[in-house]
């Protein structure tokens, strides 16, 4: 029985349309509290990339970023049985990640933001498709560097995790739900402009787009 349940959890969290994929977060937390390590892995599968996205958006040096993400998960492990609302563990993780990153920013001895381009990811696709897709993705990553928080994180979550929906995106980005639409609009407007500027020939004299600058300040 236990083996089957463990297997279901693994399949469930990896494959979205498996019944376990829809297991409520609260149920996963309660099972992890009861010592079910597969449920803890289920929470990791569900949230580790999102927590990493939050941490990554702060552009900390790699070591600081890993310390922050590790600490958030360690803290959750110890707090798990003491959570007031197990269903809202995602909000708890997001708040803890924002908090830890702000502390790292405050105490970090570095002076310039870390260039995240070197913090690249493993990719299991063919070299050709990576090459084809690569320039576009690199350009978007570069453009994301040019916009501040929380806009950068909101845009990134909408691009990588559209299925989350606005409530959870607001939760992960640490912004008020009522302000999300405006932040999203502003973020993608800036992203579009930065991408446009990247592709324009260097050295050409451009008339500053004053209307756009005014809109951005809003």
């Amino acid at each position: 029985m236990r083996v089957r349940r463990v297997l279901r959890v693994y399949l469930g969290v990896c494959v979205g349309d498996q019944p376990e994929g829809t297991t409520s977060t609260g149920a996963l937390v309660r099972r992890a509290v009861d010592g079910d390590a597969a449920a803890w892995d289920g929470l990791l599968a569900r949230y580790s990339a999102l927590v990493w996205a939050v941490v990554h958006s702060y552009r900390l040096p790699p070591h600081d970023a890993q310390d922050a993400a590790q600490t958030v998960w360690c803290a959750l492990a110890e707090r798990l049985s003491r959570l007031r609302d197990p269903e809202r563990v995602g909000a708890w993780l997001a708040a803890a990640a924002h908090n830890e990153c702000r502390r790292q920013l405050r105490t970090g001895r570095r002076t310039a933001p870390y260039a995240p381009e070197t913090l690249d990811l493993t990719d299991h696709r063919s070299p050709e498709s990576v090459h084809l897709a690569g320039e576009g993705v690199r350009a978007v990553r570069r453009a994301l560097d040019g916009i501040g928080l929380p806009d950068r994180l909101v845009a990134m979550l909408y691009l990588d995790y559209p299925e989350l929906g606005p409530d959870r995106i607001a939760e992960m980005a640490g912004v008020a739900r009522a302000e999300l639409a405006a932040i999203r609009r502003r973020a993608f407007r800036r992203l579009r402009r930065l991408l446009r500027e990247q592709t324009e020939p260097v050295g050409r004299h451009r008339v500053p787009d004053r209307a756009a600058q005014r809109r951005d300040r809003r």
């Binding site: 590790q70 990719d123 994301l144």
Partner: peptide, 24 residues
């Protein structure tokens, strides 16, 4: 391509270690 990959293995390893060490 996703803009950002999964969390580093060290994060999952730390999470599992802390889970094994928890003292509810």
């Amino acid at each position: 391509t996703p803009l950002l990959g999964p969390a580093p293995d060290s994060v999952r390893a730390a999470a599992r270690a802390a889970y094994a060490m928890r003292r509810p």
